[in-house]
Nucleic acid binder design. Structure first.
Lengths: 123, 123
DNA sequence: GCTACGTGCAACCATTGGGTAGCACGTACG
DNA sequence: CGTACGTGCTACCCAATGGTTGCACGTAGC
């Protein structure tokens, strides 16, 4: 979150990137931050704090979480730290969820088949 | 979570269904429960507690959260309460995430266009 | 009818997490 | 060179949450 080391989730996936992304996204305030960030293209914590009902420090903390999840990236520009949104991670998470949903569907279908056509074997 | 009134999220979406689904999914234990549930097709809290490293009551609590999020549904069968996974919600959440990702992409592209082709107007 | 298994509920504990306030440091600007 | 703005860090508070144990109730089976 130092805004110059960049994203903690940029390369590795140490502590379950899925958990990081999902829990980062689970917080409404964090989603509002992401939304405001997407609207501005780039913004500082101070600017974001001005249009959200939380303090600057809270924004900084949230940006830290979002950065670790790889959903935002920050860089220093003079004396201010600008952050921007990173859409890729969200897409990855969306695809992951879709895959799991499909997997569940498959398993449920298989089980249903077994339960219904016990002796049939091939429906 | 009474398993006979059914899913709390079955009809309404009182407290932000997005938040409910995401925070429900954010917990690793909860994801393992969902996984085990999908593997069994149907299972009781006791069965799940047997193959996960948490107590039965913990499972029950998690099932409550998952039920409120609409990710599982339960029904009584004799003296046991069986739960099953509900894949639809996950798909909905996945599509929501994909939509947001696309939205971000659009906004970022527009902003980039403005920044690069200030005087050009058409790249 | 008694026993045993499974569930539901309530109390309780420890940890995490969102939020705030205060302070120290660096950087731009007069 | 001094001032002002913006950032970063630490300490602290309160609520929510994951987890546990214990107990009471209903239901199935002998």
């Amino acid at each position: 979150m130092t805004a110059d080391t960049g994203s903690g989730a940029g390369a590795e996936a140490g502590a379950d990137s899925v958990t990081e992304v999902l829990s980062a996204l689970a917080d409404p305030t964090r989603r509002r931050i992401l939304d405001a960030l997407a609207a501005h293209g780039e913004a500082t914590a101070t600017v974001l704090a001005a249009e959200l009902p939380v303090s600057r420090q809270a924004i900084v903390k949230h940006l830290g979480v979002l950065d670790r999840a790889g959903l935002v990236a920050g860089h220093r520009e003079g004396r201010e730290a600008r952050y921007r949104v990173v859409p890729e991670r969200l897409g990855v998470a969306a695809r992951w969820m879709d895959r799991i949903a499909a997997e569940w569907d498959g398993r449920l279908a298989a089980i249903k088949r077994l339960a219904e056509g016990q002796g049939t074997g091939a429906d």
